[in-house]
Design a protein around this nucleic acid. Sequence first.
DNA 1: ACTATAGGTGACTAAAAGGTCACATGTCAA
DNA 2: TTGACATGTGACCTTTTAGTCACCTATAGT
Lengths: 106, 106
Amino acid sequence: MADDDLVFKALADPTRRFLLDRLFVRDGRTLTELESELDMTRFGVMKHLRVLEEAGLVAARKSGREKLHFLNPVPIRLIHDRWIDKYTERRVSALTELKSELEERK
Amino acid sequence: MADDDLVFKALADPTRRFLLDRLFVRDGRTLTELESELDMTRFGVMKHLRVLEEAGLVAARKSGREKLHFLNPVPIRLIHDRWIDKYTERRVSALTELKSELEERK
DNA sequence: ACTATAGGTGACTAAAAGGTCACATGTCAA
DNA sequence: TTGACATGTGACCTTTTAGTCACCTATAGT
């Protein structure tokens, strides 16, 4: 399997994106902590975390009997760079900033 | 299905990413033109283009009996903004630039 | 030492996605 | 107006993926 394929496949699932969202707010969380926020068994969450880890989106470190999970933003940036060149970046980010401003006013 | 789900699902397939790559180089291509670059029947390619279109990653316009396809980078930028905040962006993009520089020297 | 707690493996089922085909419509150009 | 070309639809099969469960190992703390 190609290197980037793991990243995109990992991002394809809404549960995994939710996990990244939680780690974006604060990382260093354990499996059990993440599981408690999801309507799913521990095994399901464990599988998802493994997929994220193999994709390099999450880095994990064992600490005693716990396993701590951290978000790695680098693969996300590489996605960006693949289809947005430096010249259009200014234009596009201006657009998305406008979009989020408009949505805040709702 | 959630709005962003369509985008991530669309990006999960390597054939669809290849299509985006081709449109990134030059867009306004027809189905037949894109098909000729892939080892797949026209129907497969058509399905993929439809998925990309529904995700908003590709915009299409009919011109006579042809259908022209264009790349829309906005959803890509939104992915970036979801997990990379303004403060870490400088640091991360510095890292990815370093990475691509190193790879060019190979 | 014992017990509760945190995490891990492999097999299994159900749902979703990728790809092809027979068939069909609309458009160009001689 | 006839034939070739570009695109479209629905059914179908196969492969992949999400989620659960029975069972297992390791650490913490009393």
